[in-house]
């Protein structure tokens, strides 16, 4: 392990400072060009920024590209294809860009120019930078990191679970730190969770559920050498506890 991975993992919150990227699109053809030119940060913010803006919602609004094509350009079919590309290509900037361009490429060039937003309805592209803010939460091992994440706010989730794996980071990344500590399964689970595009609070609840399921298995397993009656009692207690916790808002 390098020094980065020997040290405890410090969980940071982050403030996204959003800026205009300088690029604009008035029609599907210009959107195609803008997506080709967009930085990875810009692409990321347009598909994942909603997670940061509305961490508590039950269902996220659509990504900025699909929303603009559906409402300003009024091309519902292309909007659906873009939504699907975002949903299925969240893994990496390259795959996402290719998916978006492929969706737009299914419209002929003349049509792409013709399908335009009304005056004043341009899509102005954005980008962002993260200002990191220490949370004071330090993890010494994977279980500690799991517990810290369960406590952490939406900003920390966004930064470590969603943003850093996508865009890379200067310091040690959460997933790499977990792998270096032998917790590859947790790292893979978090990667899959980030790829789901769920609201951040839903992700946090899923982590809590995962931790509780593991706790339930441990308690049941601890009770197994005991008599059937004791084991059933332990199982019932564990299930009742889980139900109580899951009912909490």
């Amino acid at each position: 392990m390098t020094d980065d991975f020997v040290a405890p993992f410090a969980l940071d919150d982050s403030v996204p400072l959003v800026s205009p990227s300088g690029d604009r699109a008035r029609n599907l053809e210009e959107l195609r060009g803008a997506i080709e030119r967009a930085s990875e940060r810009s692409l990321f913010w347009h598909v994942a920024g909603g997670q940061r803006r509305e961490p508590w919602c039950d269902e996220l609004p659509p990504d900025d590209f699909s929303a603009w094509v559906a409402t300003a350009v009024q091309d519902r079919v292309t909007a659906e294809r873009l939504s699907f590309a975002v949903q299925s290509q969240r893994g990496s900037p390259g795959a996402l860009r290719a998916g978006l361009l492929e969706a737009l490429g299914r419209v002929r060039e003349r049509q792409r120019i013709a399908r335009a937003a009304p005056d004043g309805g341009d899509l102005a592209l954005l980008t962002f930078e993260s200002v990191e803010v220490p949370t004071g939460l330090l993890a010494h091992d994977p279980a500690g990191l799991e517990a810290a994440l369960a406590e952490a706010d939406a900003g920390a989730w966004f930064h470590h679970v969603v943003e850093q794996p996508w865009l890379g980071a200067d310091g040690p990344r959460l997933h790499d730190w977990l792998r270096a500590r032998g917790a590859s399964a947790l790292a893979a689970w978090l990667t899959e969770l980030a790829g789901s595009g769920l609201p951040l609070e839903t992700m946090r609840r899923r982590l809590l559920q995962r931790m509780r399921r593991r706790e339930l298995r441990r308690r049941v397993s601890d009770a197994s050498p005991h008599a059937d009656g004791e084991r059933r009692q332990a199982e019932r207690a564990a299930v009742a506890g889980l139900v109580r916790r899951l009912r909490r808002p």
Binding site: V133, P134, G136, D153
Partner: peptide, 13 residues
């Protein structure tokens, strides 16, 4: 608390 903790941490910077 979270929003306030964030402000306090930024203020320290």
């Amino acid at each position: 608390d979270a929003a306030i903790r964030m402000l306090e941490a930024l203020a320290r910077r």
